[in-house]
Amino acid sequence: MTSAVLAFEMAYWQQSVLRSVGVLAAVLLPAGTIVYLFLFKMMSFMQSRLGPNEAGPYGSLQLLAEVGKWIQKEDIFPAKADRKLFAMAPYIVVASVLLVYVAVPFGPDAWFARLDTGIFYVLAVSSISAIGVLIAGWASANKYSLIGGLRAAGQLIAYELPMVLAVVGVVVQAGSLDLFEIVRMQAEGEIFGLSWFGNPFILTQMVGFVIFMIATQAELTQPPFDMPVAESELVTGYMTEYSGIRFLLFFIAEFASAGAFGIIAATLFLGGYWLPGLDMHADYMNVVGPLVLLGKMLFVTFIIFWVRFTYPRFREDQLQKFAWTLLIPLALVNILATMVLKVAF
């Protein structure tokens, strides 16, 4: 595992501090942007409301006010809760999101750790959050939380599969599990002899992209796949008993993982940090690349949240049926077609 964070030399501890701060920034900034841009403003305009508009210009400081409010609140433990597990669960969920960002390339040299099996690692750690959710549901000693936790676990298992299978198509086409390589293949590839805009895999892997986005929606437990939280029915499921800082952690994890999956989708299908006309190996991409990636992430999360505000939710059995009878066979067909075409061309 090579690690060259910046062009100039630094001591190891300096690099560690920089990486820690970097990951936190990479997690919190997109999460905050998503919450403000989509949850506060876009949702309000779609629902003919104004949204927050008092705190700061256009309500932009509302999020800070909310965070302040949550930090002040009492951290309540239910009497019959398993205290250790109950306290631990939000951290597991947040940690799984933080770990996803580790393998993402933000630029030619701007990454935290370059892994040869990057996408494999990303999909593996992103599903750790299921354990945290299950622990939260079990430890709360609340029936709604338990049902929510079990539903979440069942749903994450069911939708992990089509997601992995959708990614396999990309991996087959790129010929690598390394996220950096996948970006390079998109930047340097060509389609139908046209090379100036490379070959973003969304063009060839359209089916894979759609499946990946649907599975993402389910992994994030956003409507129409929000059965585990179902606020009108399970009263937010596994989060029911949480308050204060621990609820804030769940909240951050929810939107940070939306950002994380947005970044993964952008990297796999939309050309990552690269844009047509830019040199993906140039030094300036260490600054421009993260901004490009952020822009693409916002586009992908915009789709996620657009769907979220529009659709009602599936029932648990319909949701499982949808995954097992439609998405997974479709993803398998997609892989088969990709392999045949890969050999043919």
Partner: peptide
């Protein structure tokens, strides 16, 4: 709409 998860319908209703 709200009970079935589509929040937007509720706001249109109130509007």
């Amino acid at each position: 709409g709200l009970q079935l998860g589509g929040q937007t319908a509720a706001f249109y209703g109130f509007r």
